[in-house]
Design a protein around this nucleic acid. Structure first.
Lengths: 206, 206
DNA sequence: TATTATCAATTACATTTGTCATGGTAAGTC
DNA sequence: GACTTACCATGACAAATGTAATTGATAATA
């Protein structure tokens, strides 16, 4: 498989290259030193996998990755990082990268590349351990079971935005009284007590 | 590396075994057909990696994994699944498994095992793509900027649980009046209007 | 046509909520 | 002591909220 390496630290680049060259199934197709070069080289070389530092001077790896993925939805991008960077994990996942590994672990990079090549995503252990705490409660209720009307849904979302009855009435061209009645029936249907519980319900289940 | 295979479908087990045997760096140390066997065999064989079906008849793979991990925190457990099972992803991550891959992809299992062996976690692509939607908004406001007191924080969380003033008072051994006053100062500090907006604020920033 | 059903609006009422001024108490500081 | 300061409580009040019964309008149905 053909790999494109991008890191603003040249030493890292050459180290990676020599390490990867030892694997006969891996070819280093090119090396870049910035986000811009990553985009440029990726388009020209079309490597199987782009191995890129997530944090670089001008353009971050994330930004470059986002641009590349916007053009080639199937691009396989594997991020390198010097430490487990809590902040970037979510974004890296969101834009659709293939993983996120610590570059110190030299000997684990080749296996990771092969797993990515086979269509998997790879994450360093210390990174995965952080994901659960980032995850929402997902004990969602089956909302369709409550058969709420269109209008009732609109009211719920506005309540969940923190609007009061008068504001909701203005927004939906209803009288304030109607909004109040609507909320009463919503509370009835959902077995809740007041609008605050309704907002809580909204955020816990949506 | 030595692998323990556990799946309640014997056909899957033998298929996996023949596939893995083709890799000279991989040895199938044992095969089990239930969660109970998984625990038993794991303790006896101490394999490098336990490759286990997540869904089995009596005891689920998750339950077995939890027990194994409670005794051996460093156990490397890789789950197999027939389809990308939304429900189990989070739990699998939480208990500390090393990944979650689709068993249909025969040829990707060996690379995945090697990556796990090197200390990484591996996830099938369709699984990873689901994680971002499970993740909380984390565009957090710098809450320390508002210097809220300990008591105010407690009140906020209870408001965000949907309790009314009387209930909060009971919970914190305060009078209802004090709770009302406290909320007033919270709203002042956070520049909000009412308890519903406070709950909304809580869920949007926490 | 008559009958239902649905929806918005209105009214009235009880309760909850948010605000403000005030008072008491305990723990420090001068 | 006298003086803050912080914290909790109280009472009073206006406003917002939730509930219920009722009405008018409209459309749909038999």
């Amino acid at each position: 498989m053909r790999i494109l390496i991008v890191d603003d630290d040249k030493l890292v680049c050459t180290s990676l290259k020599t390490i990867l060259k030892q694997n006969e199934d891996i070819t280093v197709a090119g090396i870049g030193y910035s986000g811009k070069e990553a985009i440029d080289l990726y388009n020209r070389l079309k490597p199987d996998i782009l191995l890129m530092d997530i944090r670089m001077d001008n353009m971050t790896g994330l930004e470059a990755a986002e641009i590349i993925l916007s053009k080639d939805k199937n691009a396989k991008i594997l991020f390198l990082t010097t430490f487990s960077d809590y902040e970037y994990i979510i974004t890296a996942l969101k834009i659709g990268s293939k993983g996120y590994i610590i570059k110190q672990n030299f000997e684990s990079i080749a296996p990771a590349l092969r797993a990515v090549y086979m269509g998997q995503s790879v994450f360093g252990d210390d990174i995965v351990s952080k994901i659960p705490s980032l995850i929402k409660n997902h004990n969602k209720v089956d909302l369709s079971a409550y058969d709420l009307t269109e209008k009732e849904w609109k009211v719920i979302t506005l309540v969940a935005e923190g609007l009061n009855n008068k504001e909701i009435a203005g927004r939906l061209y209803l009288s304030e009284g109607t909004v109040r009645n609507t909320i009463t029936t919503i509370l009835e249907k959902l077995d809740l007590r007041d609008r605050t519980q309704l907002a809580v319900f909204y955020y816990k289940n949506k």
